[in-house]
Design a binder for these strands. Structure first.
Lengths: 209, 209
DNA sequence: AATAAAATGCCCCATTTGGGTAATTGCCTG
DNA sequence: CAGGCAATTACCCAAATGGGGCATTTTATT
């Protein structure tokens, strides 16, 4: 049967927290925590041979940040899941962590029972997230509510974003190329840009299309 | 004290499932489920006056899909949380639901206890997701592993995506405008596009930058 | 009814872009 | 060591783009 323990590694600079977490995890049935590190630099030296199933990674670390750490460790440990542990849930840190390869994101005040459940969950193909963080991520997909562009302009911009040129767009919308140009000028003015690429990028960043 | 019940509405076409869910929820302490609908059309008629805290929304519905339904209901019920219920976890359906305004996404095989916990969680500002779905979302932030572009090309593309033109990019990279053009041509060839806007969009979609 | 915003259309002109082609250098791999 | 690829530079030319201005009609919105 599947009586394998989940091997957990910890990267955390504060001695007390690190040792406490190690004890909690290592003493829990089904878990083992034999490798802990106080910074990413020392983790990178030997974590490859430790071959953990899950790494609990602090973000605020002396020297290399936890985000950079994941970027460096992930290629070495492609089958390891990384769970970020952090005190605050700053928006850009969350997204940068996900981009770096984290598949879990928990606040440090997560109670031990929930922490262990999260480690199990990430191993079973999930992505444990503290509630407020999960909500931020979900909301990040929603389009902007106050979109300065008119319906027609959004339509034109969508075609722009597909790489179509004036004449093609004019054909698709049954209007003249000059009108397309007029709309595009209006879009540029509203988004304060002066090229197609900028318009498209700005629209995506602001979730206008 | 906060002895308010959470008011839950259900949109689900299958009678058995709908009635079973209603009973489970309505009979649980702290929950009320007095409004259920068999399709979005009928829900849209009266859900505004029902003013639910949470809507459990089936995706596969006769007539209007659950995704369209959310798009229409959300503006009417800005403070209501929508949880999608679905049988399968198809990637594009997940993301379209989130774009439409869903803040929870559960598989229909979610056990009742977990369903109730999820309803509570979404009310407390979370975003309950079935494990596999949460993982899909987390991974969607990670950059592509097999990026056909060279380092230099990525660099150029990143500047392109910022809306810079040839000469500006050449200044920033300390190379000639002709070289920038050469890189861009190479990028276009690899991404099979023929304009800046297309290149930028393609790169974003394929998570190359 | 008045006003504003959006949608439609057109012109001129300078700048930018994209396609084609060619060559040199340096690095890495088989 | 040879071939391949990345990075670099260069030139010609046609097409597309962006800035400026202007005018009419339709559609809200007050």
């Amino acid at each position: 049967m599947t009586e394998e323990k989940i091997h957990v590694a910890i990267v955390e600079d504060e001695d007390e927290i690190r040792e406490l977490m190690q004890q909690i995890i290592d003493r829990s049935p089904g878990f083992a925590c034999k490798h802990v590190y106080k910074d990413c630099e020392s983790a990178l030296e030997s974590i490859k041979s430790a071959l953990p199933d899950v790494v609990l990674m602090d973000i605020q670390l002396p020297g290399m940040s936890g985000i950079e750490g994941i970027e460096k460790m992930k290629p070495e440990l492609p089958d390891t899941d990384f769970i970020m542990l952090t005190i605050r849930d700053e928006e850009d840190i969350v997204f940068r962590s996900l981009c770096a390869g984290a598949t879990g994101y928990l606040l440090k005040d997560t109670p031990p029972v929930k922490l262990l459940a999260s480690i199990r969950e990430v191993r079973e193909g999930g992505s444990p997230m503290s509630p407020g963080i999960a909500r931020k991520i979900a909301i990040s997909f929603q389009p902007s509510k106050d979109n300065p562009l008119s319906e027609r302009e959004k339509e034109v911009l969508t075609w722009l974003a597909n790489g179509e040129n004036y004449s093609t767009i004019s054909t698709k919308l049954f209007i003249s190329g000059n009108t397309v140009r007029a709309h595009i000028k209006s879009i540029y003015r509203k988004l304060q840009v002066n090229s197609r690429a900028q318009a498209v990028i700005t629209a995506i960043k602001q979730k206008l299309i």
